[in-house]
């Protein structure tokens, strides 16, 4: 086993050169380069964390903006609905008033016309009674040759017409 057989002749050389090359690696690579590499990694991690935070903030701002917009829009819509409702109510009231007025005018004209018809009818009735009485007197005078008093004829006609 050369490790033991050569121990005394190679020990100092082994220790010396290992210390030299390990020491060089430690100083140049370990102390010189590794902290920089770790720094790069840390810088990148920080950058990523920062970017993520910025993105999150932007997203939060957008959400808040949208929320505000929605509230504003809802208020606008409610206001518009109120205006429409008011206009509708006003139009309905105006319609009702106009309808009532027209109805009243029509009713009045109807009543007027009915009254006129009634008057015409009663005057016509009266005329018919007169004509009937005269006719009855004439008939009686011709047929019986009797002379009937107009009042009596009228009374007789009235009595007959009441029975019609």
């Amino acid at each position: 086993m050369p490790q033991i057989a050569q121990l005394s002749e190679t020990l100092t050389s082994q220790v010396f050169w290992l210390l030299v090359f390990f020491g060089l690696t430690f100083v140049v690579v370990g102390l010189g380069m590794v902290p920089k590499i770790l720094g790069t990694v840390e810088m990148r991690d920080n950058q990523i964390a920062g970017d993520l935070a910025a993105a999150q903030a932007a997203r939060d701002a957008a959400t808040a903006e949208e929320e505000a917009w929605r509230t504003r829009e809802n208020a606008n819509r409610a206001a518009a609905q109120a205006v429409i409702g008011e206009a509708k109510a006003k139009a309905a009231a105006a319609n009702a008033a106009k309808l009532a007025e027209t109805q009243a005018r029509l009713d009045a004209r109807l009543a007027e016309a009915e009254a006129a018809i009634d008057a015409a009818r009663s005057s016509a009735m009266a005329e018919i009674e007169g004509v009937a009485a005269d006719a009855a007197r004439d008939i009686v005078a011709r047929v019986a040759g009797a002379h009937v008093e107009p009042a009596a004829a009228e009374a007789a006609v009235k009595e007959v017409m009441a029975h019609v």
Partner: peptide, 9 residues
């Protein structure tokens, strides 16, 4: 104290 540059070194 020999420090020969060996194949190991």
């Amino acid at each position: 104290v020999g420090i020969a540059f060996t194949n190991s070194a």
